[in-house]
C-alpha cells in the first residue's frame, strides 16, 4: 500500500505543538527497519518516522521531536515527547536508536598534536574510536560552542569532533588548542 500516508491529517495546527504521551503511541519497526508510529485516535499510522532532539545539548533526554516525510516529500512533525524516560523501555530503545542515526560525531578524548600550515590546521586526536587525523581551515566557523564549556570542531568536510568539556583536557592539550582555537 503506497498511499496510506496521504493526505496528511495530523490534528496539529500550525500554532500548537502536539505532545505525545506514552499511553497513546506505539512504535514498531517495519520490514526495512524503519519506524512506524501509531497514535491512538489517528486514523492511519505514520511510517518512516525519525526522531531528533530539540535541545540536544542542554536536554538530551527530553523534548524529542518525532517526524516523518509526507507523500509530497515535506518534512512534518508528528508531535513531541517531553520526557523520554516516561516511556516504556522498548519504545525508549527504538527512539534512542533513531536518535543515534540522526547524530554522528566523534568524541575527542585527547589531542595529540595540532599543526598550522598554509592556513590549515592539521589535527591529530584520539577519539573513542582510536587515533585519527583531520584537516580544517583555520577559520572561526570551524569551532562551535557546545554547551557551556564544550566545543565542536568541524573539519573541512563538516565532520564533527566533539570536545564535551574543554576543562577536562590536560593543561598541555588545552594550551595547544587555545593557541589556535582562541575565540
Amino acid at each position: 500500500m503506497k498511499s496510506n500516508i496521504i493526505p496528511f491529517h495530523a490534528p496539529t495546527s500550525s500554532v500548537t505543538v502536539r505532545r505525545l504521551h506514552a499511553d497513546t503511541i506505539t512504535l514498531t519497526r517495519d520490514s526495512h527497519a524503519m519506524l512506524t508510529c501509531t497514535i491512538s485516535g489517528d486514523a492511519l499510522p505514520y511510517r518512516g518516522v525519525c526522531a531528533l532532539l530539540l535541545f540536544p545539548i542542554s536536554r538530551p533526554d527530553e523534548w524529542v521531536s518525532l517526524r516523518f516525510t509526507d507523500a509530497t516529500d515535506k518534512d512534518r512533525e508528528i508531535g513531541i515527547i517531553e520526557d523520554l524516560r516516561a516511556f516504556p523501555e522498548d519504545t525508549q530503545q527504538l527512539i534512542r536508536e533513531s536518535l543515534a542515526r540522526h547524530y554522528h560525531e566523534q568524541k575527542i578524548v585527547s589531542i595529540v598534536s595540532i599543526q598550522q600550515r598554509y592556513g590549515q590546521l592539521f589535527f591529530k586526536v584520539r577519539t573513542q574510536r582510536g587515533e585519527e587525523e583531520f584537516v580544517t581551515p583555520w577559520r572561526q566557523d570551524r569551532a562551535e560552542d557546545w554547551g557551556t564549556s564544550g566545543r565542536v570542531l568541524l573539519d573541512a568536510l563538516n565532520n564533527r569532533y566533539l570536545i564535551p568539556d574543554m576543562n577536562a583536557l590536560k593543561p598541555r592539550e588545552l594550551r595547544l588548542l587555545r593557541t589556535y582555537i582562541y575565540w
Binding site: A33, M34, R101
Partner: peptide, 18 residues
Amino acid sequence: QTVGSAFLQLRIDGVYVN
C-alpha cells in the same frame, strides 16, 4: 543530510528507506 553524516534513501512503498 543529518547532523554529521548523511543517508542514501530510496522510497519504497511510500516510505524512504535507508
